[in-house]
Write a protein that binds this DNA or RNA. Structure first.
Lengths: 147, 147
DNA sequence: TATTGTTATACTCTATAACTATA
DNA sequence: TATAGTTATAGAGTATAACAATA
């Protein structure tokens, strides 16, 4: 007779990957919630961040940065453009590509979002010391490096 | 002019959540690959693990453990049953529920899978010391605790 | 009334293939 | 030939609502 109180996922707790997944999902759902009031999703927030840091980036390079397909970038950029957050500028030297830029409105929204996300993270990791956070990030980066 | 070589995701690297996501996705894709030869997915592997550890668990409790919807559990159990890996036993005391059990074939497959996953994790985290792994898991669990 | 298992459905994400215009 | 952007589509994964049988 299994009750809901003691979630019987213990056999999986021995795997680091499982703990990584649960931690990610926990943080992620909270992260999503912290952006809804700005009508942004993790992907759109990330896109704004990358365009903000890399003005005139192309859709293809943006796709690579986000590890998304170019085809899926299109509809996302369509939406952000329709909302007046970014613009697709023509590039004279190569008429195939668009140079993406944030509008003033896009920049303002990204700054708001950035603060919201930072606040969300500070609150969720408030019992972590600075050194612990740094150590955690170093470990997370090492995991990716293996690939 | 952005090249693909230096992926411009740096503005996001300051967020722990982003590093957590990238680490999770990196480990996850490798994890998926380590199970394909047994025709298992992360979810089916987890289901087998939980049923193995908790014989006669109901579908509803399994759903709670996996953080999945009951409706989606049904089709997954259908598939595992069709493959002869588990059985749905009737429960005399409550005729609404099924008691899930691994078959011998299911147990054997789960043991194989368990070894494969362990091997995958050992290989991917081979440059982590035992203490480091332990410390990482402790931190990942702390992140979930906040919720 | 509430719960278990079930079905159907819808919605989001992601992946693939084919097209156009440019290079 | 190769590449950028685009369109359409298909496949996962996940979420919701309604139902029959049973408690």
């Amino acid at each position: 007779m299994n009750s809901a109180s003691n979630l019987p996922d213990s056999p999986l707790r021995g795997f680091i990957g499982y703990n990584l997944k649960r931690a990610y999902m926990s943080l992620h759902s909270d992260f999503v919630a912290s952006l809804t009031h700005l009508d942004l999703k993790p992907t759109t927030f990330s896109a704004l961040a990358i365009i903000n840091e890399n003005p005139d980036i192309s859709q293809t390079d943006l796709a690579r940065s986000l590890a998304m397909e170019r085809s899926n970038i299109v509809v996302m950029i369509d939406e952000l453009e329709k909302r007046g957050l970014i613009v697709r500028n023509k590039v004279p030297t190569d008429r195939r590509v668009y140079a993406l830029r944030l509008t003033d409105k896009g920049t303002a929204l990204f700054n708001d979002a950035s603060r919201a996300v930072q606040h969300h993270e500070d609150k969720l990791l408030e019992d972590f010391s600075f050194d612990e956070k740094e150590q955690l990030v170093r470990m997370l980066i090492r995991i990716q490096k293996v690939k």
